[in-house]
Nucleic acid binder design. Sequence first.
DNA 1: GTGACTTTGTGCCTGCGTTCACAAGTGACT
DNA 2: AGTCACTTGTGAACGCAGGCACAAAGTCAC
Lengths: 229, 229
Amino acid sequence: MAVTGHADPGRRGSSIRAIPEATVARLAGYLRVLSAGVPDGTISSDELAAFAGVNSAKLRKDLSYLGSHGTRGVGYDVATLTAEIERTLGAHAVYPVALVGVGHLGSALAGYGGFAGRGFPISVLLDSDPAKIGTSVAGIVVSDIAEAAEVCRARAVTIGVIATPESAAQQVADVLVAAGVRSILNFAPGRLVLPDDVELRRIDLALELQMLAFHESRRGRSAARLEAL
Amino acid sequence: MAVTGHADPGRRGSSIRAIPEATVARLAGYLRVLSAGVPDGTISSDELAAFAGVNSAKLRKDLSYLGSHGTRGVGYDVATLTAEIERTLGAHAVYPVALVGVGHLGSALAGYGGFAGRGFPISVLLDSDPAKIGTSVAGIVVSDIAEAAEVCRARAVTIGVIATPESAAQQVADVLVAAGVRSILNFAPGRLVLPDDVELRRIDLALELQMLAFHESRRGRSAARLEAL
DNA sequence: GTGACTTTGTGCCTGCGTTCACAAGTGACT
DNA sequence: AGTCACTTGTGAACGCAGGCACAAAGTCAC
């Protein structure tokens, strides 16, 4: 039952102050705004909040978790704040990623440049299909999933990305965990069962569309609509 | 700011009670479990909850929003419950999707079979690159973004998916809205400004990785982190 | 029909995240 | 030096979602 984070009551006491998951997500957003699109110098919480599209009080509370004190009457020093957020998020480090499943989605992710630039180079590609093993995708040779452990350890992989069909996802996840990966991003639908100390995040494309469809259908309820009801 | 709160007197009141966003997401999950992997007949909330990986009380509360009454002492009729959830989510209808940006990610999404099977056929592909317009991707001809309005209306598109670089995202979103699209799924990082009646969901791949990196980096610091400064 | 058993539906409590509002600190200006 | 305008940091209130526990309601056996 290790869904995103908070399924672990009582055991997380080792950090300075527990930073809420929602705050971490927003911090990453602030970091992006700060990194690109803000002049050097100082910035007030109101300004930054406007850029990021959030309430300024929320922003200040978020930043208060960092211990990063701005100066009252002036605002936050952009350089200092950037460094502070990076330090807190661990964004100054590089996290090699292993991507499993070199299908449509997997290839696209491998070819997407936005990851390496943000400290997440895709260092390992894995698949079980003999036709794919040994081929090169986006400049990286595809390895056999059976060799996951050696390859991942050799490249100091810390994060695994699952882009396989649902049927293979659980098995792949187990392999990754056995290979020492403790953070997994799962694109396959369905539920993964993992040890509690493995951090899991899920991206379910069909679910997102279904959420939109729900609102769409609620909208159309008043007008007569060509539905198969 | 399209807040999900319900302090909105002018709500379209076709549904009995406002359904929380979190509940809608879980309902989609229940639907998947029900559709594949559950024997016909009846199922108790405990069983279904175990399959879906949630608390059984939460499941019952979720289902109570449907007005779908199970029978006490027995459980829920699988067929009835499935139909009920589908009706509520609008999952019985088909929602044609327009996908903008036929790059790495866009092509992958177009080729991903998981959408059409769930009622979200990708009916329109759009791009601004003349080299791509007119070509065929996953069996669909790429149209010029300039013709978005006509093409989308012709195909009765209700949902738009943005898979362009960040720099083009806002502009594309505006075009989609002008073309009558009122639900958007955005893969581009950054913030989109949209009319209040347009439903927006965001998938930020880099953000997900950064969340994992945060936990990863905290793990490494578990030595002894007393109050700094 | 009756009683025992099973499972739903929900009232209540708890805890978290968001928002408000304001005291406290800072720099500029006179 | 003193005042003033400005902005941070946070205590407190609020609202929402999650979980517990139990009464209501229905079934099954006899």
